[in-house]
Structures are given as structure tokens and as C-alpha cells.
């Protein structure tokens, strides 16, 4: 983000304010108002097409790449900084707001190079510093013990779950403030899913995490707060225990209890 803008508190909170978002003439998000607290896990849930992934991609401006897509009202602030103001450097923004995708997407390089890639882009050249940073990221992503003896082997030889944790290591290597996760476990088996969920619990001490998931159980297990979206609107946003024990809105209860979806 632009260092010349106002000096906000460094707590990595995300504030979505009266956000309308369109694909062409189609309104995909309607008046979304959401305060996402720092160093907590917030889950976005809702049926397909409800706008949850669209909102996630607004937070690191991934939607900028879609020609007809644009915010038509409102905005998003991270630590009080409007991330859509013209002076924002989008590359820097995406360094501070990392993203983990549904399908693991390691580069066709070595395990080491996958993690070191972002660090090199930031200008880190010193070998010892690179080694230390790669190890730190792999330890933090609970992958170090499994790969420390084959760091220079291809990342494509790792299992699906390991590849996804490698992608998380690649994301956290550049020390973002916020991590966006778009269905990060949908292609993983239960054991690999459990490892990623354990990782999410560990990472929230240092990062603000926002996760899109279709699994109600996963949302209830890993998140502190849950936002339920339906047809582009935020229907209910509350702490996760409240949402899954006694939601306030009937539509939320119908969705989480399997009455539609």
C-alpha cells in the first residue's frame, strides 16, 4: 500500500463500507457493510453465486483483472487505508494481502524456489537471509519437517495437501497482513484438511485470515466470525458460535441447517 497515505494502526483489520460491485450491468454485491477484526479468522459462507468469492477478491483487488468488473459504490479499508484510492500500488497491496486458492498452484520449480520467489521479488538476495526466511515460512506452515531434506526437489512431487501448505508458506514468506483463502481445502482429503485447519489456527496469531468455504463444519471449526451471504447481500454476520447455535435470521438458519443450498 502507499506509504504516503495516512498512518493507520498496524492491526490488519479490514473494513468493507457500503460496497456495491458489478460484473457489467449485473450487481453482484449489494451494500456490503462488514468490519473484519484483526488476528481472527472470518469465514464467508453462502450458496454458489452469493458473492462471497467476489468480495474476497475485492480485498486484494484481484477483480481489477476482470474488464467489466468494478466497484460502483462504497469501498474497502485495511487499517484505515482506502485500498481503492488511486495512489495505491496494487502490487504492494497484494503483497500485504496474500491469497491461497482452491487448487494448489505451486510454480514448476523446487520447493525452495517456490518460497523464495516472492522474497527475491522484494529484493532479498543474501543467501543466508533467504535460507532463514524460507525455513521460517516452511516451519510456520507446518511443512518443514516433511521437506527439509528435499528442498531442491520439484514442488510438483509433493502431495496435494503438501502443495497447498507450500502455497501457504509462499504466501506468508513475504509477511502479509491479511491472508485470503478461497476454499483452500476443497480438493484435499480429511487428513490434509486437518493439517491446513491446524495451520489456520496457528497463523491467526500473526495474520488476519478470511476464508471462503462451502463446508459448514469447516467454518464452525476454524473461524471466529462468520458472514452469510445470499444473492449478493450480507444476510448475517456474527461470531461463529452464535451463527451455528442460534442464528438471528431465518434465511441463515435455513442455509446452515441444509434447507437450501
Amino acid at each position: 500500500m502507499d506509504a504516503n497515505s495516512q498512518q493507520p494502526p498496524d492491526n490488519a483489520s479490514v473494513s468493507v463500507q457500503h460496497l456495491d460491485f458489478c460484473y457489467g450491468s449485473s450487481l453482484a454485491l449489494k451494500n456490503i457493510e462488514l468490519e473484519i477484526p484483526a488476528h481472527q479468522v472470518t469465514a464467508f459462507i453462502g450458496p454458489s453465486g452469493c458473492g462471497k468469492s467476489t468480495l474476497l477478491r475485492c480485498i486484494n483487488r484481484m477483480n481489477d483483472e476482470i474488464p467489466s468488473a468494478k466497484i460502483t459504490r462504497g469501498g474497502i479499508q485495511i487499517d484505515g487505508v482506502d485500498i481503492y484510492q488511486p495512489s495505491i500500488d496494487v502490487v504492494k497491496l497484494r503483497r500485504e494481502v496474500g491469497m491461497v486458492f482452491q487448487k494448489s498452484n505451486p510454480f514448476p520449480r523446487s520447493i525452495y524456489e517456490n518460497v523464495a520467489y516472492g522474497l527475491r521479488l522484494r529484493g532479498l538476495r543474501d543467501k543466508a537471509s533467504l535460507n532463514a526466511a524460507v525455513e521460517e515460512a516452511l516451519v510456520a506452515s507446518a511443512l518443514w519437517d516433511e521437506v527439509k531434506d528435499r528442498l531442491h526437489e520439484s514442488a510438483l512431487g509433493l502431495s496435494g495437501g503438501q502443495q497447498q501448505r507450500l502455497c501457504i508458506a509462499r504466501t506468508i514468506a513475504v509477511k502479509p497482513k491479511v491472508i485470503l483463502m478461497d476454499e483452500p481445502c476443497s480438493a484435499l482429503d480429511p487428513i490434509a484438511t486437518a493439517k491446513v485447519e491446524n495451520l489456520i489456527w496457528d497463523l491467526k496469531n500473526d495474520y488476519t485470515i478470511i476464508i471462503v468455504t462451502h463446508s459448514m463444519q469447516q467454518a464452525s471449526r476454524v473461524s471466529d466470525n462468520t458472514a452469510f451471504f445470499y444473492l449478493g447481500e450480507l444476510i448475517e454476520y456474527s461470531d461463529t458460535a452464535q451463527i451455528f447455535r442460534n442464528p438471528s435470521v431465518r434465511k441463515t438458519e435455513e442455509y446452515i441447517s441444509g434447507r437450501f443450498g
Binding site: M216, S220, F244, N246, P247, I256, S257
Partner: peptide, 9 residues
């Protein structure tokens, strides 16, 4: 079925 909310209750 992992019931939630009023179903769980």
C-alpha cells in the same frame, strides 16, 4: 448429518 442451530437443539 451434523445438525446445527434449532436442529441440533
Amino acid at each position: 448429518f451434523h445438525p446445527v442451530a434449532s436442529d441440533l437443539r
